[in-house]
Design a protein around this nucleic acid. Structure first.
Lengths: 178, 178
DNA sequence: ATCGATGCAAACGATTTGCAAACGT
DNA sequence: ACGTTTGCAAATCGTTTGCATCGAT
């Protein structure tokens, strides 16, 4: 998995079956409501997407989906992910030009990102205090906040050369930037 | 201009001539140091860029520059802005796919963004308290923070239909998202 | 005179779309 | 059967680059 602990663990409740812990159900009801169809390639893509709790690129998603359904094309992945976004299940993150990653948004609270410049690993965290402050700041400008993006770029212990320091990314063994 | 007030005005000091208040000087010395040349189209582009204290798209920058130098091409704008980035004068912000804006990075502190979903207007703000909290959060994960990106998406007063509410973007008359 | 800079147009990578065939309802 | 979805390839968008010419030092 590409991501790690939360500062303030919130969803300590049951992870499946609950009202917001069932993205697959949301997906199905979204399709039904819209009169759309459940195809095998869509299922393959959605399953691959949901299996990954971190961030995915569309190429990764394509190969994942192809393990179940070798016939899927890249265009279908784009189309399906767009549906997932409209359904509120997926959220796009634009980390740079041509570097768009997607993540599961359903049932998850606002969360922020810590990104290691050296190894590219991404940690998620939450902070209610920060949320409060940013809402206050927005209010001062007459805004109400619907979504937000908060990314901190820096170096993990390991990358800073701290003896015994470990990069959480290496501990998890994933997503090391070239 | 596309951006507005700061929550905590910091650079109240002299805006020109100081060690970090002279981006044009930085630019010239950067060119000299690298053995690059000062051309009229570069000057036109850099001047247009510095005249705008907020965010610019490259198309906007092109037309601005063309008012001084009708012969400039889009490729030159790209090349010049890349130089500005290398010189540390410009910073790119990727707000979405195909929506890259540039801003002056020289002499400016970390700042966050408030973005109206309805009209696309972007306000900047700063909050030392948020900075403190995010540094603390990073520290808890063994990170030190070098840069960060903090964007709040929501609706301005006008867009929420508040009587008498004004969208700062419309007040400034710029950058209304389609 | 030399070497970098320019403009144009072609190249490029990521994303979208037109279309006939295939599939789910 | 009907209308949606698919895969492919072509189209499109933003961005980059090759190349012959132009301009600054």
């Amino acid at each position: 998995m590409a991501t790690a602990s939360s500062l303030t663990p919130k969803n300590a409740g049951p992870g499946r079956g609950g009202p917001r812990g069932d993205p697959k159900g949301h997906w199905r009801s979204y399709l039904a409501r819209k009169g759309l169809k459940t195809t095998q390639q869509r299922e393959a893509i959605v399953d691959a997407f949901l299996r990954i709790s971190g961030h995915v690129g569309l190429e990764d998603l394509l190969s994942s989906a192809r393990r179940k359904y070798p016939r899927v094309g890249l265009a279908t992945v784009y189309r399906t992910v767009k549906l997932l976004e409209e359904a509120g299940i997926a959220a796009a993150r634009h980390f740079g030009p041509g570097q768009t990653l997607y993540e599961v948004s359903e049932g998850r609270a606002h969360h922020d990102h810590l990104i290691c410049d050296a190894c590219g690993f991404i940690i998620e965290f939450e902070s209610n205090e920060i949320e409060k402050l940013q809402d206050a700041a927005a209010k001062r400008h007459g805004f109400n906040v619907l979504r937000h993006r908060h990314e901190l770029f820096g170096l993990c212990e390991k990358s800073r050369g701290i003896p015994g320091g470990v990069c959480p990314g290496e501990a998890a063994g994933r997503r090391v930037r070239s």
